[in-house]
Nucleic acid binder design. Structure first.
Lengths: 225, 225
DNA sequence: GGCTATCAGATTGTCGACAATCTAATGAGC
DNA sequence: GCTCATTAGATTGTCGACAATCTGATAGCC
């Protein structure tokens, strides 16, 4: 049994159900690499593993299909969507556009971005500790904050979806020998450029950052036609 | 009975089911204004109207929720998502970004855009006939082709979703006294700029076009907090 | 031997019934 | 008259069973 139903010990809070939603469990399994791209996704099998009926599993699969994590070839069953090189490029190029758009809005509206310093500082601490996981969390928080500060709800929701798949890619990638300090050092200049209202420089810096993050060897994706 | 199950007379072709999917029926009802923003969406009621059980209706509602056409306040039921002025602005501003991004890719890759002439010509014919519906169809085809030619699958799928909601807005809007010829005339200069590889001009032209299309009076949305 | 028809298996699609949960109205108590 | 507990109603969530459909293997026929 690979996936187990996760039950929290916390009492109910507000409208959060005691049991973690089926979609969250499966999503987690996909994002942490337990269910790699190409893995078949069968309703009945998952229902048995999770001790629920097919209905909630079906609903969860549908959500993940909308997320773009699962694909369904009619009558050949569903499976974890295989990643292609083109798709990775599309993800990162779109991410670049979103960040540039966010910066334009932030500069135009003179939004206060002091929050970004916090995330940047956290990244340096993580880098010193060689704590890759913590660095990634802080990095994600930094970039999500940038999008959120642009005050564009639609873009933020698209960003969250985009980042799901970026997390999936990062989980598959061999990130053994990355220079954590170098990643952390990328960020303060971006903040500085935004605060100086130098839109062009800020966009240029963040584009370089995203492009360097998008490098991935095809063989790391498993298959890549 | 407002919505009726639509059954085509055509025999089955390939994997296309005889009956139109429940999601399509409900989506159509939302987009053509039959189910206006705020209308409650109740599984059992729709199931009875469409003569199906709750399962397919449930699935359809979930799809439309992912599309952003339906929202669900926990335990208060689901309803057609009310449009706010901010949301309309976000939709059109994102559309503008997508089109600018598409033009950049098209110009950089020297993509052949001759297909756009066809759609533009169709728009002039429709404008001469004062055929607003035909004009809208051709206009949508023009802009979708622009995105498609950018060869970015992810953006194209996001565009399709975006345009769903734009269609919804256009259906609500009172478009009685629009100058159809003026709308048609917007497009040839855009094509010309792209073919001359004048990226800046092309983006500027299409931004103006989108911004003029985004004008809407708040009262036309029904409610707009 | 190669081709086609038939059948078993697997998977998704649909159904009706029941359970869980919240909202809103009703009524008792102060 | 106001507040709070109780209850009826509405709505969504979950379940097990059955139906429809395709895939792939097997057997029969030329």
């Amino acid at each position: 049994m690979i996936i187990e139903p996760q039950v929290t010990d916390m009492a109910r809070i507000e409208n959060v159900p005691l049991r973690v939603s089926v979609a969250d469990i499966i999503r987690q399994a996909i994002l942490n690499g337990t269910m790699r791209p190409g893995t078949p996704v069968v309703e009945m099998a998952l229902a048995e593993q999770l001790n629920v009926s097919r209905a909630p599993v079906r609903e969860a699969i549908q959500i993940l299909e909308a997320d773009g994590l699962i694909e369904s070839e009619p009558y050949k069953g569903k499976r974890v969507k295989p990643l292609t090189l083109k798709e990775v490029e599309e993800l990162y190029s779109l991410r670049e556009q979103f960040e540039a758009f966010a910066i334009r809005r932030i500069v135009e509206r003179q939004v206060d971005v002091s929050e970004l310093h916090t995330h940047s500082d956290t990244m340096f601490v993580a880098a010193e500790r060689s704590d890759l996981a913590a660095l990634n969390v802080a990095d994600e928080a930094f970039h999500r904050a940038l999008i959120r500060l642009a005050d564009h709800g639609l873009m933020l929701s698209l960003w969250d979806n985009l980042y799901l798949r970026i997390r999936q890619i990062m989980a598959l990638r061999n990130s053994a020998n990355r220079d954590l300090r170098a990643v952390a050092r990328n960020h303060p200049p971006i903040i500085a450029a935004i605060e100086k209202r130098d839109m062009i420089l800020a966009i240029s810096l963040i584009s370089d950052h995203t492009r360097s993050a998008s490098q991935i060897a095809p063989e790391e994706l498993g298959i890549a036609p």
